[in-house]
Structures are given as C-alpha cells and as structure tokens.
Amino acid sequence: MWSCMAYNQTLDSVDYHVCQDFRFIISVFSLVYLIVCFPVGLCCNTLLVVVNLSNKVTMTMPDVYFVNIAIAGLMLNLVAAVELLGPSFTQWPLWEYNNKIYITLLILFNISSLVIMYSTTLLSLDYYIERALPRTYMSSVYNTKHVCGFIWGGAILTSFSSLLFYVCSHVSTKIIECSKMQNKEAADTIMLFIGYVVPVMAVLYALVLIFRIRKKSTPLDLDSAQLDPSIHCLLMALVCIQILLWTPYYMVLLVHTVLTPGRESSRQNNTTQYFLRCLSVLLALSSSFAIPLVYKRMNRNFSQKLKELINQLMCRQQACSHEQSLAQQAIT
C-alpha cells in the first residue's frame, strides 16, 4: 500500500518530500486516465465487440482475435475503475479494499494480460500461415474461435496456478502446504516467463517469417489478397503497442524477482520502486484503449460495419413506428 507515514517522524526530510511528490504524480496520472482513457476504452471496446458480433458472417480471422482482445480490454477497464480509485494510486482514495479484493483484481489483470499477449501471438502466426498457404482454411474463422477458447482456458488456469503463491502469502502460516509457498517472487517469475518471454519470442519469430515472405515475390502472394492489405499494418501496430505498453510492467517484475528476497533497501529505493511499478501498471492498462482506437482507425471494414449496424437499428425503429401507425389506423 502506498503510504508516506514512515517519514512522519521527519516531515522536513528529503525522503518525505520525494514520497509526497511521487504520490501526487501518480494521483494526477490516475485521474487523467479515469477521465480520458477509461471512458474512451470502455466505449471503443464495447463498439468493437458489438459491431463484430452483430456481423458474424463478415467476420474474418483477425476480427475474432481483436474481439477477444476487446473483451480482455473491458476486464482491464473494470480493474482500472476499482484499483485506480483505491489507496495504491490515489492520494485521497475513495475506498479501501482487503486482500480478497486485491487477489481478485490481480487474477483479472493477469488473465487479461495473458489473453491480450497470446491473441497477438497467435494472430501473428495465423497471418503468416494465411500468407504462406492461402485458401487452405488453416487460419479460418471457425478454427480461430476454437483457438480463442483455448486461450481463455489456458489464461485462467495459468493465472490461478501462479496466483496460488499470492493466496498463500495472505493466509495463515498454520497451513502446512501454504507455509512452503509463501514466495511472491515465484509467482512473478511464472507470469514473467509465460506472460511475456514466451509470447514475445513467438511474435518475433512470426514477424521474421512474415517479412521473409513479403521480400519474396511468389505466385502465392497473388492469392493471399483474400485478407485485407491493411491487416499487415494493423498487425505491426498491434505488436508495437503491446511491446511498448507491457514491457515496463514485466521489466519491473523482472527487477523484483532478480533482487534477493528479504534484501534490505532504503526507504527511498522502496518508494522509487513502488512509483515505477504504479507507472508500469498505468501503461499496461493503457492498452485497453489504445488497441481498439488503432483497430477502429486502421481497419477499413469497421466503419462500414458500424454504419450498417446503425442503419439496421434505425430501420427497426422506423418499422416499429410504421407498424404502430398502421395499427392505430386499423383501430380507427
């Protein structure tokens, strides 16, 4: 929990003022996120999901992955709404929460991060398959839906297995099984390896294969036009956003796991580490609104689908009003 109470005995000390400055900066960033980024992310993710699911026939393989990323983004919005108004990020918190709520938020955050990272990874690999072997239906919408089901299942299982260490660190030490697992660094190591190292290596491998195909002019490229050419730029933007926004968070986990558990450090170092952790979490949460904005901007078919959905809703309302007028005329 973010607190400067340890410096109360020396209110004029440099450490106390540094702590207060860090708390103020984090509070300002949190407020800006809640006022600007939170509503934008909530609206854009909801639109992305509703528009695509209302036009299931026209959905492509990338659309399915982006719908899953948007659902994970909505979960991140929920986490942000609760956590950013709590004592960790706000100088004047609106509420306090116990360990159970903390564990729940951590579970949702980790599940969302895993779904987003692995959706990006598999989208890169499926895009390569579609470019290398077009019209083989190996990366079809049907297969992608089943793959995304495995992504969510694997993310839930992975999160709960790694968070077992967090749970045991908050329960009584009288439980023998948990007394041997009260090691938060082990949970951070699991998330660092599974949630960042593996998907990033897979994404980089897929990008190398994609660029090799693009450099070679083969007859297969003529047949790969079934995918929108803008998908390549959208994929590159997605990968860049993921790496830029999530790398600081996992680097903070790496620093935390590398440091020897129980190692003594100064109060100022602890405050600086906590400040960097809060900033990294804010950057990670920012992916919940950055990705749908990029998708809306770069996907050529999204605007058309949105217009069709609005027209359908308008036509339904007009049809209902027309039917009501006909019914009134029949009564009179």
Rank of each mutant, 00 (worst) to 15 (best):
C168Y: 05
S169I: 01
S169A: 13
H170G: 03
H170L: 15
H170I: 14
H170V: 14
H170W: 15
H170Q: 14
V171P: 00
S172V: 00
T173P: 02
T173E: 12
T173D: 11
K174W: 11
K174T: 15
K174V: 12
K174P: 04
K174H: 12
I175W: 15
I176S: 13
I176N: 13
I176H: 12
I176M: 10
I176R: 15
E177Y: 14
E177T: 12
E177M: 12
E177G: 09
C178A: 00
C178I: 01
S179R: 10
S179C: 05
K180H: 14
K180I: 05
K180V: 08
M181Q: 11
Q182K: 12
Q182A: 09
Q182H: 04
N183Q: 11
K184C: 03
K184L: 15
K184S: 08
E185A: 15
E185S: 14
A187M: 11
A187C: 10
D188A: 14
D188P: 00
D188C: 13
T189G: 13
I190D: 01
I190E: 07
M191K: 15
F193H: 04
F193M: 12
F193E: 08
I194W: 06
G195C: 04
G195D: 01
Y196W: 15
Y196K: 11
Y196P: 03
V198C: 03
V198I: 15
M201D: 05
A202T: 10
A202Q: 11
A202S: 13
V203N: 00
L204E: 08
Y205P: 04
L207V: 09
L207K: 04
V208S: 01
V208H: 03
L209V: 02
L209R: 10
L209F: 00
L209A: 07
I210Q: 03
I210G: 00
I210E: 02
I210K: 02
F211T: 08
F211K: 04
F211L: 08
R212E: 10
R212M: 11
R212K: 15
R212I: 07
R212P: 04
I213Y: 01
R214H: 10
R214K: 14
R214M: 08
K215E: 08
K215Q: 06
K215T: 02
S217K: 15
T218C: 01
T218L: 02
T218Y: 00
P219S: 03
L220Y: 12
L220Q: 12
L220C: 00
D221R: 08
D221S: 04
D221V: 05
L222S: 03
L222R: 06
L222A: 05
L222I: 07
D223Y: 12
S224W: 04
S224I: 03
S224V: 05
A225D: 10
L227A: 09
L227S: 13
L227K: 06
D228W: 00
D228Q: 09
D228S: 14
